[in-house]
Design a protein around this nucleic acid. Structure first.
Lengths: 381, 381
DNA sequence: GTGAAAGCGCTAACAG
DNA sequence: CTGTTAGCGCTTTCAC
């Protein structure tokens, strides 16, 4: 029996009129208030822990009267179940872990919205981790989430060459689903966009307008190692697919050495300098295809700084139809990826697995559409 | 001893050339692979659970050799601690719960980035919940997070009139910090922006340019109940502060009945219609102040649809300097809230509490700055 | 230094 | 229908 103490006392006085006055005694940090447990409720209700657990956990069968007693006791004691303990014994946490590259990128935040809507609808919560597109951070995130015993995992992997951590997850039997980026070597559910096709269509639009010098700007790093095709080894499928689509469309149009028109390394601050450099060249591109909306925004700024007009001097198309693309002058033609449904679809897929669906692995590829606006015109002569 | 089974076997064959072939046998769902526990490691290392726990948990003292044995065993078995069990006994989860109004709003996603950066630096993980600006969803989110035994909570409360759930959290002794929106009735740490001052300065800029008919567009609902000041009861401090700042600056300039120029209800889709309506009136405003960047974007579109030019026909200022404000023609003058540091500051504050700082409650108010661009000019005559 | 044993709060057999 | 009894995987006294 602990000694009675006024240290943790709170007196709440409901005034007839409006506000609630709360008089709180000084709290003693060392003496942490033990939260009320199922055992407390059971004792108060004069039933066994098992019975109390049954009504509070909403399973099994209990008599009318017992149910009532327990509920009343729980109410009185302000009982809140300890989800941790519950997860511990059931093995389920009700959590879906999500690892994305960059939550600040509207592409991802919109997808995450799709995921959390689907999750909430199915009674799951989402725990979100940011990898910052760094493989080590991604591994750490996965480790932490697994440690937290998430029921399932959705990840946008930063590097397809290093997937041991994902393979481990998969082997451990915990449902895993891939968002936006496919991993050919990993046989798990995935929902992606047909980036290659989208890039081809966007490039064709430019080619059809008469462009021959088209630059593709991407955040991917230009690696030292180059493959047989003269391209650096690209570590994410979306990036690679888009570049391939771009190159294929260029070759289709008999444009020579299109791989020389791929501009790498367009990370946040670097983009503007890279594009500015390209624009300053004597054979500057007459059209640019940006691999995401953040890059496109910087590209737009670089074009403006170079005092070039869109589409008269240069045409521009971007991947991802961000909110701003329609308010620039002119508005920007964009590849519209169904981002929200991308998120919703993976989540739905994962949730089906969590509910025991053992059907064959699904790899859903969603088509993107092209929204034509005013940023594409014929090249200047 | 479990019988040997090939059910869970995976054979990985590394081919000399390129790809990795994975042959996976059918997995049997019923036979869930029990993850390796501390006891397994202890057994393998020929030590007691306690010793294994000491080295794996990084506390207490162990002999050199024992340490080595345990580490080796853990490595061999690919041991991953069960954070759940750990949290259960220690009472700490290493989780910071964050409840925001709308993760899609770049304002919040940027703040969340600040929070998670600070959290990661201090060894905490972030679990994120979206309230959709609905008080019931917020309450549910708080309940869930508390159930998950988060160590601390950061919330942007959707309604300052209903804070019983937050009061409960506070009373339970779990650290709570408020982000962006103050709650005068709740004596907890908070980091907010000086919205009133920012609104005044923005409005003054308009007044000084000669404007007399200035509209303030906000997402807040126009309630039936009105206070003594003729304004509906506003449930969030930021919204109220901004409106008050706007009104104060108007009164300062002897503008009559400025409260009639506050346009309520600018939720996503509604904004454009509301602004369009105002622009169609004979005494249409000559300047608009938008309460966030999403509203500003829609307002911009409405202005363009009304074939009005900025700033010749109408001036525009927005709260929150979203990425797009600098690429429109003309670029938009904006109130620049230090969003990232807002998030970082609350997180730092909360983390200090988690580490036992019992100092007096802090309410940090950060000043916003005004970025003047080309969207403000004199009113048309 | 190390080990045995007692929980943390809950669920899940298994009897009654 | 209800209670008893084991655990879940880990930390943490408390002896040795």
């Amino acid at each position: 029996m602990r000694p009675v103490s006024f240290r943790n006392c709170y007196i709440r006085i409901d005034l007839p009129s409006t506000s609630l006055v709360v008089v709180s005694f000084m709290k003693d940090a060392s003496e942490k208030r033990r939260s009320v447990t199922l055992a407390d409720v059971a004792r108060q209700a004069n039933v066994s822990k098992a019975t109390a657990a049954r009504v509070l956990g909403g399973y099994g069968v209990v008599s009318e009267s017992a149910h009532e007693d327990v509920m009343k006791a729980a109410q009185a004691l302000d009982y809140r179940p300890n989800e941790l303990a519950r997860s511990m014994t059931t093995g389920r946490s009700g959590l879906i872990g999500v690892v994305v590259g960059d939550i600040e990128n509207p592409f991802f935040s919109f997808a995450v919205r799709g995921i959390s809507d689907a999750a909430r609808a199915a009674g799951f919560n989402v725990i979100l981790a940011n990898s910052g597109e760094e493989i080590e951070a991604e591994k750490a995130a996965v480790r932490v989430l697994i440690g937290k015993r998430v029921d399932g995992l959705i990840v946008t992997s930063a590097d397809c060459r290093d997937i041991s951590h994902l393979r481990d997850v998969h082997l451990s039997g915990r449902p895993l689903a891939l968002l936006d980026r496919a991993l050919p070597d990993l046989d798990v559910d995935a929902v992606t966009v047909d980036d290659r096709d989208a890039a081809m269509r966007a490039t064709r639009l430019l080619v059809d307008a008469g462009h021959r010098r088209i630059a593709y700007v991407t955040a991917a790093e230009d690696a030292e190692i180059r493959g047989a095709d003269g391209l650096p080894v690209i570590s994410t499928s979306t990036v690679r697919d888009r570049i391939e689509g771009f190159l294929a469309a260029c070759r289709e149009a008999d444009i020579a050495q299109p791989e020389r028109s791929v501009l790498f390394g367009a990370k946040k601050t670097a983009t503007r300098a890279i594009v500015a450099g390209a624009l300053a060249a004597s054979d500057r591109p007459t059209a640019i295809l940006a691999s995401d909306s953040i890059i496109a925004l910087e590209t737009f700024k670089a074009i403006r700084e170079a005092r070039l007009r869109i589409p008269d001097d240069i045409s521009l198309i971007t991947f991802h139809d961000a909110d701003w693309t329609s308010v620039t002058s002119p508005p920007i033609t964009a590849v519209d990826q169904p981002v929200y449904s991308l998120g919703k679809s993976v989540a739905d897929l994962l949730i089906r697995r969590l509910k025991g669906d053992m059907a064959a692995v699904e790899r859903i590829v969603i088509a993107a559409s092209l929204i034509e606006r005013g940023s594409v015109g014929p090249p200047p002569h």
